[in-house]
């Protein structure tokens, strides 16, 4: 029985790569480097995830302990694009200074901009985010804003010049998964820049769901670092990201309430037709 083929995806050519601000990446998975047991595990998980963009934080050096070992001794900067974040910043001023320090520390214009509004949920302060984004964009930063899944804020960030938007799927580190796929769909229809789901992913299927919705990428950290076997989970995330993207590009079948037989209806052995 023939069935109408599903439509080609609205967003991105099949086989296309994640592309923004003049950079192109084969992997659509971005991973954080926090919460791992040690640097070696961090490096192995990054490797296994296939990610090309990895996030780092900027923190004060302990005056007691000095510099000691560095993450950068274990992560090859030639192999990865380092994406510094402004995690932990609750004011526009702190986020801006952190971004500027990151640029000096790592020689990159990229910044994952976080301006937090609440310590329990780590939800962004979108007013502060917009203010900080505007200032940093004028200074030539490639601002990748962590925001709520609010299509209006995402549109404003795009209009301002952010080359991507990064709405959360659920609170950072919560593992609750894609809580509002409908908002993500609206965001995908609202903005033209890549949409990277940032935060809230718990397991591989969450990544697949985000990618099947048409999101251009997923950024995650805790779901790998906190897994029983982070290295194995890193691979699971990689495969889920690829599977979800392929499914999106393929164009899924529409949902229907009743069955549609896969085998021919003619020539069935027997005489009873209900």
């Amino acid at each position: 029985m023939s069935q109408t083929r599903s439509q080609a995806p609205a967003r991105g050519e099949p086989g296309s790569q994640l592309s923004f601000a003049g950079r192109t990446f084969r992997s659509r998975l971005l991973v954080g480097t926090g919460k791992y047991k040690d640097f070696e595990e961090t490096a192995r998980a990054c490797e296994e995830s296939g990610a090309e963009i990895i996030t780092v934080a900027i923190r004060r050096i302990s005056l007691e302990r000095g510099t000691g070992q560095s993450l950068l001794d274990h992560i090859d900067p030639a192999k990865y694009t380092l994406l510094p974040n402004t995690a932990g910043c609750y004011t526009v001023e702190d986020a801006i200074l952190t971004a500027r320090l990151a640029r000096e520390a790592l020689g990159t214009d990229l910044v994952k901009l976080e301006v937090l509004g609440d310590p329990q949920t780590l939800f962004p302060d979108n007013r502060g985010l917009l203010q900080a984004a505007e200032i940093l964009l004028k200074e030539g930063f490639v601002v990748m804003p962590y925001t709520t899944d609010d299509p209006v804020i995402c549109r404003q960030l795009e209009e301002m010049g952010c080359p991507v938007v990064m709405p959360l799927a659920a609170p950072i580190g919560s593992g609750l998964g894609i809580r509002n796929p409908y908002n993500l769909r609206i965001i995908l229809e609202t903005v033209k820049v890549p949409v990277i789901v940032d935060a809230g992913v718990g397991t591989a299927s969450d990544v697949a769901v985000a990618m099947e919705l048409g999101c251009d990428g997923v950024l995650l950290n805790t779901a790998i670092a906190g897994a029983g076997d982070p290295i194995k989970m890193a691979r699971a995330m990689k495969l889920a990201c690829e599977a979800g993207r392929l499914a999106y590009e393929s164009g899924r079948i529409p949902r229907r309430l009743y069955a549609s037989a896969s085998s021919p209806l003619e020539g069935v052995v027997g005489s009873i037709t209900p």
Binding site: G34, V56, A57, I58, R59, I61, L71, L219
Partner: peptide, 28 residues
Amino acid sequence: AVVPRARLQVAAVAEGDRIEVVRAVQGG
């Protein structure tokens, strides 16, 4: 204000200055 690495040798410090010394660390 960020002081570029190349200027650390010549950047004078004064009484009461607030100085931040940071580095890239693990984070998400």
